[in-house]
Amino acid sequence: MKSTPKEEKWDLEIEPLSGLFDINWRELWQYRDLLGLFVRRDIVSTYKQTVLGPLWFFIQPILTTLIYVLIFGNIAGISTGGVPKVLFYLSGITLWNYFQECLLKTASTFSLNQNLFGKVYFPRLIAPLSIIISNLFKFFVQLTLFLVTWVYFLVKPTSDINPNSTLLLFPIYLLLLSGLGLSFGLLISSMTTKYRDLRYLIQFGVQLLMYATPIVYPLSIAPEKYRWLIQLNPITSIVEAFKYSFLGEGYFSVSGLVYSFVCMLVTLAVSILVFNRVEKSFMDTV
């Protein structure tokens, strides 16, 4: 093979294993239209296949909230810290649903897209990113449900909820939650391509994680001794801060949010690196 002069410019080089930090951000940007179309596909197709359509997005949180009110509120008698039970559980469920959907769906990126990934190249990160964004749509639908209930209790004279200026931080909560869902999902998806047993663990693990997050109970009723354990969970401070902002009841801590942010950055960096690596050899091992 004759050698090529150095000054020749190649647009693409295909080589065995690229460096750990070799992520083509520019290419990701070039494929932004695909990202948009994937999001559109996800939303349109979930909506098209059902009779009730987007109504399902409401039915699920309403039923879950009612069950929680009945079981955790009335039968178990767990305090909600003075917040109307419906509102308390609905806020937790809305947040948790979003996080859980992001995590579980991104975790199955490879198995869901196996056909696509085997036939055509595009930056693989597009697939999990599109999941996060299309779930955002669902989240906002459910958030509307929460807001309607919230406004109802707000104008009702007897209830005691005190929204405050920390409401402005809401976009940050959302960013943190999305980031954490994405990064955990990516990590798991990368690992399940090789070690399948993990797949069975996830469903179960996510459920456990919910109980380690103040969703069905306020952080304030957790015993002092174990509170740090729950606070170790990066989602805890997001959920608590969200409740504090909207309801005036909860544990708002800047340091907690900073901790969640750092957690998100670290896991996101690690997970993107791992994903980037797995993505290149995935077709040979799946």
Partner: peptide, 15 residues
């Protein structure tokens, strides 16, 4: 060539 999988060794350059 379609970048679905990586080679074990060698290189392809494309313009």
């Amino acid at each position: 060539l379609s970048r679905i999988t990586k080679p074990t060794s060698g290189r392809i350059r494309v313009k």
